[in-house]
C-alpha cells in the first residue's frame, strides 16, 4: 500500500473570467521513504495539487478525484476539519518564504512548543528538551540561546531550518516542501537540501519536493512528475528522466538549462509556451 495515492485529480477555480481549470487529471503516488519531485513552471499547478490534498484551498475551488487516500484512508469522504485531524500529525508542509511562514510576534521556541503541545502529550519539561533536540537536529547553532530569538533576528536560512524543525517535530510520515529553497542563496540552498534529504533518510519519511529548479530535482529526487499548465507530462524515475526524457516538453525544459547549452543560442520551449501564450492572448482579447 502506498503512503499517498492520488488518481485523476482535478481542481477548478471560479474566477472573474469564468471557471479556470488549474489541474486536469493528475496522478501522484508516494511510497514510504521516497522522494517525489513535482517539477513545473509557474502556472503548472504544482502547488495547487498539494494544497487540494491538505484541504487548504479557498471555497472558490472545486476538487474532484477518482482516488485520494493517505495510508489507505480515503480523504475525499472527510470534511476539511476531519481531514486535518487525520493527516495533521502525519503530513506537514513547509513553504517558500521561511520568514513569512513564522509568526513574527513569538519566539521560535514558543512556536515549536505550541506545535508539540498540540500534537503530543509530553509534559512541559519534556517539551522544552525536545525543542532543543529538534533545533540541534536541524543544525541551529547554540539552540539554548536561539529558542528565545524572534524570526526577524534570524537569517532566511535559519528560519527555514526552524520551519523544518516545526514540520518534523511530530515525526510526520510525509513532508511536503513547496519550493523550500527558492528564496535562499545557493550555498544555503545546498545546506537546506542536505538537511531535508538527511532527515528524510533518517526518519524514513516520504518527501514531496515541489520545485521549478531542475538542479534541485537532480540533487534530491527519486521519482519525478513533470507538469505543464495543469497537466501531467511525464512521470519517471530521476535517472531515466535526465538520461532519456520521453516527453518533448521535458526534453525542451532540459535543453533550456544554460549549463546544457551547446551552441551560441539556448534552445527554448517555444513549441509549447509560445503556442500557449498566443492562445491565452487570443482568449483574453
Amino acid at each position: 500500500m502506498s503512503l499517498l495515492q492520488i488518481r485523476n485529480l482535478r481542481v477548478e477555480f471560479d474566477t472573474a473570467a469564468g471557471p479556470f481549470r488549474a489541474l486536469d487529471g493528475v496522478d501522484y503516488t508516494v511510497e514510504a521513504g521516497e522522494v517525489l519531485a513535482i517539477v513545473g513552471e509557474s502556472g503548472s499547478g504544482k502547488s495547487v495539487a498539494m494544497l487540494a490534498m491538505m484541504g487548504l484551498l479557498p471555497d472558490s475551488a472545486t476538487v474532484t478525484a477518482d482516488e485520494m487516500s493517505f495510508e489507505g484512508v480515503d480523504l475525499r469522504s472527510l470534511s476539511t476539519a476531519q481531514r486535518r485531524k487525520v493527516i495533521g500529525k502525519d503530513i506537514s508542509m513547509i513553504f517558500q518564504e521561511p520568514i513569512a511562514s513564522l509568526n513574527p510576534c513569538f519566539t521560535v521556541g514558543f512556536q515549536l512548543l505550541e506545535t508539540l503541545k498540540a500534537h503530543t502529550d509530553l509534559n512541559r519539561r519534556q517539551r522544552r528538551d525536545r525543542v532543543i533536540e529538534l533545533l540541534t537536529a536541524v543544525g541551529i547553532p547554540e539552540p539554548e540561546r536561539r529558542v528565545n530569538a524572534f524570526p526577524h533576528q534570524m537569517s532566511g536560512g535559519q528560519c527555514q531550518r526552524v520551519m523544518i524543525a516545526i514540520a518534523t517535530a511530530c515525526h510526520p510520515k510525509l513532508l511536503i516542501a513547496d519550493e523550500p529553497t527558492t528564496a535562499l542563496d545557493v550555498t544555503i540552498q545546498k545546506q537546506i537540501l542536505d538537511l531535508l534529504t538527511g532527515l528524510q533518510r533518517d526518519h524514513g519519511m516520504g518527501l514531496i519536493m515541489i520545485t521549478h529548479d531542475m538542479g534541485v530535482v537532480a540533487e534530491t529526487a527519486d521519482r519525478v512528475v513533470v507538469q505543464y499548465q495543469g497537466k501531467q507530462m511525464e512521470t519517471a524515475d530521476v535517472l531515466t528522466l535526465f538520461e532519456a526524457p520521453e516527453h518533448p516538453y521535458t526534453r525542451a525544459l532540459l535543453s533550456a538549462l544554460p549549463e546544457n547549452a551547446t551552441g551560441d543560442r539556448l534552445p527554448t520551449v517555444s513549441d509549447y509556451t509560445e503556442a500557449f501564450a498566443r492562445e491565452q492572448t487570443e482568449a483574453r482579447t
Partner: peptide, 11 residues
Amino acid sequence: AATPRADVASI
C-alpha cells in the same frame, strides 16, 4: 560546490 548539478553523471 553548492550549485546543484543536473547532469546524469552527478545523479
